[in-house]
């Protein structure tokens, strides 16, 4: 067993884990944060994307022990209480999800995309940036619209905060 301590959605958590425990298993099985999903074994589908120290990471390809000391944000920690994050709201508004299984990873990837590329992202860039997230339901059409709108909304929120 190995001990690991990290911050997950703002809370410090410590546990003794088998070293072969993946970060996604740690989140799902130890912390019961089941919003982060597993859709493949080869780091391709992106259903497991979480933020590690502010960057999108595939939690199925990261050992829990590798996240020692890191700050983890999962889909459960994205909303501000009952107020949805603008990207979450955009996915609902633009019907960017059907079965919902890839959705947490999509949203976490989209937020990371905006964090890196800003609020004005065009369709081609969004499609390219979604390379590591597979959706079988939507054909991506509405996901692209949602990310575009969510990016703009995140910018709006930022500007409001800056003005205040």
């Amino acid at each position: 067993m190995a001990s690991v301590t990290m911050t997950v959605n703002g809370k410090s958590v410590s546990a003794d884990v088998d070293p072969r425990t993946l970060l996604v298993q740690f989140l799902r099985e130890h912390l019961r944060l089941t919003g982060t999903h597993v859709g493949c074994d080869t780091s391709q589908c992106g259903a497991c994307v979480v933020h590690v120290d502010g960057k999108a990471v595939k939690a199925c390809t990261t050992l829990a022990v590798q996240a020692e000391g890191c700050d983890i944000l999962t889909i459960e920690g994205l909303a501000n209480g009952s107020e949805l994050h603008p990207m979450q709201a955009a996915f609902r508004e633009h019907h960017g999800l059907q079965c919902g299984y890839c959705t947490p990873g999509m949203i976490m990837t989209a937020v990371d995309m905006v964090n890196r590329l800003g609020h004005d992202i065009d369709e081609a860039t969004i499609r390219h940036e979604l390379e590591g997230n597979i959706c079988r339901c939507t054909g991506y059409h509405n996901i692209v619209l949602a990310v575009e709108a969510g990016a703009k909304a995140m910018g709006g929120a930022g500007m409001r905060e800056a003005a205040e």
Binding site: G46, K55, G132, N133
Partner: peptide, 9 residues
């Protein structure tokens, strides 16, 4: 290389 999340690790 890979995708954004892969490039982060």
């Amino acid at each position: 290389i890979g995708d954004p999340a892969v490039r982060h690790r």
